[in-house]
């Protein structure tokens, strides 16, 4: 997808993030620069522990950077959080057992202070969108994992956020369900026009969904490659059979290998090289 001229939804500049555990410090993110334009679908992919979740939580102001700045919708991340500018979906649905699906989806609106009727209307709209209409009055534990995750997506979208942050939302689902959820997510994304930042460790998922795939390396976490995904839209099951799809999957895999691998001089150099190259790929 080509970058639009409008101001970025997410603008990450020179982010460093250090964690201190028992007096010893680890550098989780090392100099991240990334700008995400309105309507983009950006996936963060990288080995476990490379700081994907941390980066996402920084965007959502659920944790603060050690150094650097993050703007969301043109304002500091903290302000964006207070303005409820984004919705968040975690790997686990994190639905509340004591609420029905309807009531779970209404929760953010309750907190914002939306009136009862408006709340019902908007929640049922979102529940329709994720195709759970028949299950509004059920409790989360009466639904399958995939259905629960769809409810979590409805809850994230109900405040009509400009930005949707998703941390391995389908990571706990089986392969079949995951592929179906991917298609559904794309349908929802196209319908709502929301910008999505999507953390995953599945290469096919990242390629199928994204406009750009951002590849990260571990210890410390860096952006090594940014790969534009030029597959035609709308995408559906047949997309997975295109030659270009396979090429892109291979390209992402190679990029991951370059960033990871056993720590040899060569791979370290590759990681260094990738890190130095990355600013060229990002605006």
């Amino acid at each position: 997808m080509t970058r639009s001229d409008s101001a970025p939804v997410v603008d990450i500049r020179g982010i460093y993030k250090e964690f201190e555990v028992d007096g010893s410090r680890t550098l989780a993110l090392d100099g991240i620069d990334l700008a995400i334009s309105p309507g983009e679908f950006v996936s963060l992919i990288g080995p476990s522990g490379c700081g994907k979740s941390t980066l996402l939580r920084l965007i959502g102001d659920l944790t603060g950077p050690t150094r650097g700045s993050i703007e969301v919708n043109g304002k500091p991340a903290r302000q964006a959080r207070s303005d409820r500018d984004y919705g968040m979906v975690f790997q686990a649905p994190v639905l509340f057992d004591w609420r029905t699906i309807e009531a779970n989806v209404q929760l953010p609106l309750e907190i914002v202070g939306v009136g009862t009727d408006e709340r019902r209307r908007r929640a049922s709209e979102m529940i329709d969108l994720v195709e759970l209409s028949e299950f509004g009055r059920h409790h989360p534990w009466q639904l399958s994992g995939g259905m629960q995750q769809r409810a979590a997506i409805a809850r994230a979208l109900v405040i009509q956020p400009k930005l949707l942050l998703m941390d391995e939302p389908f990571g706990a689902l089986d392969e079949m369900t995951r592929e179906r959820m991917n298609s559904e997510l794309l349908r929802i994304w196209e319908r709502t026009g929301t910008t999505v930042v999507f953390v995953t460790h599945s290469i096919p998922e990242a390629v199928f969904l994204s406009s750009r795939v951002v590849v990260m390396s571990a210890r410390p976490g860096r952006l090594t490659h940014v790969i534009g995904i030029d597959l035609p839209r709308p995408r559906d099951e047949s997309t997975r059979e295109l030659d270009r799809y396979y090429e892109l999957v291979t390209e992402v895999r190679e990029a991951l290998k370059a960033g990871r691998g056993p720590v040899t001089e060569e791979s370290e150099m590759a990681a260094e090289f990738g890190a130095r190259v990355s600013p060229e790929h990002t605006p």
């Binding site: 659920l62 959080r81 409820r84 984004y86 968040m88 975690f90 509340f96 907190i111």
Partner: peptide, 17 residues
């Protein structure tokens, strides 16, 4: 679940809420 609290933080919910 800590993630439930994080979710509430993402809605900028206060302690009372």
């Amino acid at each position: 679940d800590p993630r439930a609290l994080e979710l509430m933080r993402s809605y900028a919910a206060g302690r009372w809420t």
